[in-house]
Write a protein that binds this DNA or RNA. Structure first.
Lengths: 130, 130
DNA sequence: ATGACATATCAATAACTATTGAGATATTGA
DNA sequence: TCAATATCTCAATAGTTATTGATATGTCAT
């Protein structure tokens, strides 16, 4: 992730419909959703509007698309999202981990909706997907 | 963090000068930097331009300011940054941690430029700063 | 109080972005 | 091939945002 990529990504996320689409796809998981379903979830947005925002998100590298029959399926690009975050927070303490550790540890909640054991080692660190 | 706050924050981060300011302040740590130094670091931006972007960032909750003599010192608001990230990535797996664990674990690098022990428990979880 | 310094505010202009509606492209089944 | 479905592209318009230069506010030392 470099600066122009990050700027494009943040611009993409700064629009209500697009932010909702990304969050919808993050929750939808790797299987993704067809464009039509996404537009329907956005309060029945027109096809041109949905397409405009989806292609904006794809150009920003925040979502991936694949054709499946007559539908085009979109899914969240998690590596871009984590790359974006890393770009923003890199060197947040510059040698003083105690300064930003609380901020960083607050992020571990994103993958555990309602867990009780706060063990961050709950998964093997294998890159099993894109 | 709610949706309007996130939209404002992402909009703030989608502008080159503002993104650079935030990253500069993230690296500068809690002590922060005076507005003049920030403008100078932005290639000698005019005071009105620097002020415009700084107040934009402050309204978005991404930076904090305090007066110190005749200078106004700005610093990064780490809790807002982590809140923003959590908002974006919340429920990224929706019950399947193995899906997003690689993405989440990629974020632990932000606080450890070149450490060898990957122990995330290296600090007491006390909120000792803003 | 005065002059110097640091930063914020204001008004005008220029540049960018989202929405709409019409039409084009691609896929499937009869 | 034809009709139906799903999505994309295009052009025009309206709304938003950044920059500039001038001016105002607040702070400090003399």
């Amino acid at each position: 992730m470099n600066e122009p990529q990050a700027l494009t990504a943040f611009a993409a996320l700064s629009q209500e419909t697009r932010l909702r689409i990304v969050r919808l796809l993050v929750r939808a998981g790797p299987e993704g959703l067809p464009a039509g379903a996404i537009g329907a979830a956005m309060g029945g947005a027109s096809s041109s509007r949905t397409s405009f925002h989806l292609s904006h998100l794809e150009q920003a590298g925040l979502v991936c698309s694949r054709r499946e029959g007559r539908s085009i399926i979109y899914s969240a690009a998690l590596p871009t999202l984590s790359g974006l975050i890393a770009f923003l927070m890199k060197d947040c303490c510059n040698g003083h981990p105690d300064v930003c550790a609380p901020a960083v540890s607050a992020l571990s909640c994103v993958c555990e909706p309602e867990s009780e054991s706060s063990n961050t080692e709950s998964a093997k660190t294998e890159d099993t997907h894109a």
